[in-house]
Each structure stands twice: as C-alpha cells, then as structure tokens.
Write a protein that binds this DNA or RNA. Sequence first.
DNA 1: TCGGTTTCTGAAATCGGTTTCAGTATAGCA
DNA 2: TGCTATACTGAAACCGATTTCAGAAACCGA
Lengths: 344, 344
Amino acid sequence: MPRTTIADVARVSGFSQATVSRVLMGQAKHIREDTRQRILDTVEALGYHPSNAARSLKSKRSCTLGVVGYGLEYYGPSCTLSGIEQEASRTGYTILLHLIRQPETNDVAQLLQEMSSRYVDGIIWAVPEIANNRAWLKEKSFKPSVPVVFLTMETQPDQVIVAVDNYGGALLVTRHLITQGCQNIGLITGPMDWWEARERKRGWRDALESVGMSASESWVVEGNWSTSSGEEGLAILLSQHPELDGLFACNDRMALGALKTARERSLRVPEDLAVVGFDDMPDTTYYCPSLSTVRQDMIELGRLAVRELGRAIEEHQSDQPLAPKTVLLQPELLVRESSRLKRP
Amino acid sequence: MPRTTIADVARVSGFSQATVSRVLMGQAKHIREDTRQRILDTVEALGYHPSNAARSLKSKRSCTLGVVGYGLEYYGPSCTLSGIEQEASRTGYTILLHLIRQPETNDVAQLLQEMSSRYVDGIIWAVPEIANNRAWLKEKSFKPSVPVVFLTMETQPDQVIVAVDNYGGALLVTRHLITQGCQNIGLITGPMDWWEARERKRGWRDALESVGMSASESWVVEGNWSTSSGEEGLAILLSQHPELDGLFACNDRMALGALKTARERSLRVPEDLAVVGFDDMPDTTYYCPSLSTVRQDMIELGRLAVRELGRAIEEHQSDQPLAPKTVLLQPELLVRESSRLKRP
DNA sequence: TCGGTTTCTGAAATCGGTTTCAGTATAGCA
DNA sequence: TGCTATACTGAAACCGATTTCAGAAACCGA
C-alpha cells in the first residue's frame, strides 16, 4: 500500500499541490482562510504526513542534528545526551546519533561525510578533548558544510564551544578545603592528556599558590578516573606524605576509591582526612561518609549546546560567517560529610 | 557551492548516471571491470558521496533505525543505547534517537509518524513497560509500517521482544540467600506497576515457596528504585520483622540505601543481615561492604535487539509476515561481601 | 556471413515534496 | 465602466538518486 502523498491531498481537496504545500509550510502568504481550512481538513482526513526525504532533498534542510558522542556508559555523557535530545526535540529537531568507541577517531572525515549525506543541519561534537584528538581541527581539509558546536574543549579562536568551568570548580574545591583548615592538600588527577583533568589540576594549584601553600608534584598522583586508581592513588599519596589531611579527587569514582583506602587504614574522614570529589554522581550522599563534590549540570550543558547550535544554524542559513564563542557553565560546590570539619 | 551529484560523476567519467549508480550500488551485475574502475576513480577524485535523502526517496529505505528511549540518566538504559548504536553502526545503520520523558506517552501515533516520515527501516522501543503504557499495542490503529522490536516487556503473542530474564535473576538471588542460611528473607521491590519489578518479586516468592518458606506480603516493601526508598524500606521491614536476616533489594540503588539503614542501626552486613541487589551498577564493589548483585549485560541486550530487528527488516522487505519471538537474556549472580556468610 | 544470445550502457521515468512564474479573479479607484 | 494593483491558485521545473526498458556491441554456433 503506497503512502499518501501531497498529490493525494491535492486531488481530494480539489486544489493543486502547490497550494497544499504552501498551506503546510505555514508561512502561507496568499492563501484564503477557507482554502486553508479545507486543505487542513483533507490532510487530517487522509492522515497525510509529508516525507522528510523528499522535503530535505528539495530544501536542503532536514531538521536533524548530528550528535557525535563518547563514553555513554558513564553518567556525565548520558546526561548531556539527554539534555541535547530534550532541547532538540523542543525546538523541532531530531537527533542522528553516532557514538565512537575511541576518543581519537581518525575517521572524522568519513563521519562528517556520513552526516552531511544525511543533510544534518548542524553537528554537536560531544567527545572529550584527549591528547591531540583534535589535530584534524587544524587541518585545512576540515571544512564541514554545516555549523559544529564542540562540547568540553579548550577555547579556540574560531569555534563554538560549550563546556563546564572545570578550573572554577577546582578552585571552589581547593579553597573550601583550605577554609576547613586543611594544611596538606593532595590531588588525584584524571589522565593528564584529558583537557578537563588539566583544568582541574590548574585550579588546585592556583588556589594553593594564591595563599602561599605548596603545590608541588609530590602531592599529585595521576589517576585514570577509575575507582581503583583512586584507591591506589591515596595509598601512594599517604606513603609519600603521611601528614596529608585534605584530598581533592578529580572525580567521584576516584574519591570513592580513596574512601575505601582511608577506611582500610582507619583514617577518619573528614577528621583525619577531608575528601572532595567532582561530578555529583547519583547517590554520592549515600557513600560512607557522604561525599562532598562539585555538581555540574550536564543536562543543561546539552541544552546549551543545542541552543548555541540553533543560533549558528540560523546564521549559517543567512550566509553569515560563524561567530566563534565559548560558553562556560558554572559548577557548584556541594559540601557533605566527607569534608565538613567546621560548623558553618 | 552546490554539492557534487551523481550527474557530475557521470559527466566527468563519461558514462551515464545509470551506470554510475549501478557501480555504487555494488550489486553491479553487468558492468565491465575497467568501466567500474574508471567510475570509482572519478568518485574518489570528485569526493562524491551520495545524498541519502534522494536515495531513500526513491528506494524507500534509509539505513536508519528509530530508537525510542527512556531514562537515559540511568545506567542500564545508557548501556543499552550504547549497545544498540554499536551493533547498528557495525551493520551499516544509523540511529535516529527520540527520548521520551514520561513512560506513558500517548503520542505514540505521532512518534511513529515522525519516524516513518523519515523512512526508518525499523524501530526499537526501549521504554520500560509500566502500568498500561502499552495499551496502544492492542488498539487496531497500531499498525506501524516497519518492524518494531520491544525491549524489556512481557511476552506477547505477536511481537518481537528482547529482555533480561528478571524472574530467573531473582530466583538466583533468593536461592543464594537461602543457601547462605538466611531464615527470614525480606524484599524491597520496585514500583509494582513496572513489569520488571513484578517479575523480580515473582522470582523471590517462587524461590521461597519452593523450599517451603513463607513469602507473605508482610515481608515485602514497595520501593521506587531510589536510594532513599531502599533506606526507608529496610527501616519498615525491620520494624515489622526484627528477625530479618536476609534482604533482596530489587536494584542496587535501593540496596545502597538499605546498607545505610543497616549501618545506622549497627547491623552487621552480612553477619546480621545479608543483602543482595540487582543491576551491577559500576563501583558496587566499593560500597561498604561490597555489594552482591545480579549482573545483566545491557550492552549485549542492545546488540541483540538490533540483530533481531535486522532479521525482522529483512523478512519485512521480502514481504514475509513478522515472526513473533521473545529472547531472554540470562543474568548472572555476583556474590560479594554483603551476602557471603559461608566459605565457599 | 548471418541470426540469436548475452553483456554492457544510456535515456527517461520516478520517488514526493518545494518553488518559480505566470495566469485568473477580485478589489480599489477614478 | 475601465484600468490597475493585489490576492489567490496552478502548471511545471527541480532536488539527486534508482530503476525500467530498450538499444548497441560483442560473442556464438551454424
């Protein structure tokens, strides 16, 4: 059974395809009201809905956003995607999803091609910036035909970027630990080839140095975001600095690992060692003790990205050049048992 | 700058559009090898890649799968989506993603319409079965034009369904608790309008009754999957049955909440109370104590769904009727500290 | 050499919309 | 009443592919 087409609507309603199309396109300048009604009624009666393929073929628009994602098994990226979809569907876009398994895809060209062959109106690049997996950005061959918004990447002079202020978050954490009276504050970072990890480390260092405290490398252990690396990280720090009394673990999972090490060594948290994480994963209030952390609104991050992309698409369609921009989302410190030493 | 079309390739290579198309479609029956090469070279040289819109317009296929998802902020659904995308892209499909905010959408018709207007080749319905949010399945108006695979739903005589064997998993848990010597085994369920929750409860009851133990309602508290409902759930159970010595919390989050209540009441886990969860969320080994649970391979679940859908699509395209089928994925019990009473 | 296959290729129709351009009806005005 | 401006509407071209149908070339046995 063939689908109902605009031609059917035209025939049944007694008007031409052109008129039907004009009614459906909304911006109907010269359509008499009763004509409009008759056509809408016919559309309703026939249960007609237009073919997107035909529509984008002619109009070169598809009301589709391409999303390139990574690490969906983790909490942050899932929330971001959820936010992206939310805002996209609110504004009439549908999501074409492509996940990559390794952050350093070299098939960027092919990916962009695939997306452009489907006439996506814009692309959101939601892959963390790791090592030089953005090398292709500098290549002259990188000229996507549609606007691209990057998530979570270092400011670039000619790109649209939306990210959480990791540096600011780390400042909050470290200053908080200082305020609580910690004298010797260690750091378990993420992998240093991650931009986010470097930002958080920078925040830790700057906060310490700005009050004249030491931020030397012997107080730093590089983890890999995993719980076990947090567990081992704290062990290493303690062996180097038994006097450690404050710890900033750069994500909640590593903080959870550190809590385990502390428990095994009978270190009281927060009395002997105050611990703060980063991310505000679900249920961190139920850890023992409940975990202080930094909340980043990843859903809002996704929404923001779509909003920026929408703006860029409109500009693109009116042939304006892409206006580069970096939007930083401010995170929020959540103080819980694991770092509360003073009464407020 | 207009995109390069098949006409360009034809002109440059000196052959006709038809020939170029045949070469690109692969199943080129009657093409001389040197012709094929010349055309492929031209394609390469021009950087041509076909327009999906035009292609699907004519062929009524899009190499796109529609995915309707829910609750992406949670671990299970994210993994499933990841698995779906993995298998889809491996087999040449792209994902059109649509998330819904409430499981009981009544816009099913509109959703299907939207998907069909984009010529998806098949649909994966990855929304949990809650209350009667499948009522539309029985309506005569539900006749999608493409195959649909449902995730996580009760067996239906005329649908393709892929799900985890929740009943079997619950059997594993409860038998394990019995084997460990627990005499009084309580249950914190998920919301009873969830199919998965009912299945897990059924497993608990059957396991107990099959060995002649009591499975009355006074040993059951209905939670809502949240950590706090697990926390309160255990408190209620203990007030009714201080002799409680075994607990099956129907997901890991509620188990985590229960661990907190146990801690606050100085109940030793597992000595005084053995606890088992369900889901195998990340880092449950780091809870105190580490949590016994049931692992369900949600990534594989997603992959399976795509494979089944692929099969259904092929059958659909050769005009065969949809062969109903239910695939159950077997979960696996993971015994950790929270329920280990005997030495193995 | 000739008729009949078989192999290869191209012209043109088609998919289902949007948009241009031109034509007709109506209104407005002198 | 006549003439122009404006409001509607329709015929047809177009988007970029696939596919049918038929024609040309090459090959074959008689």
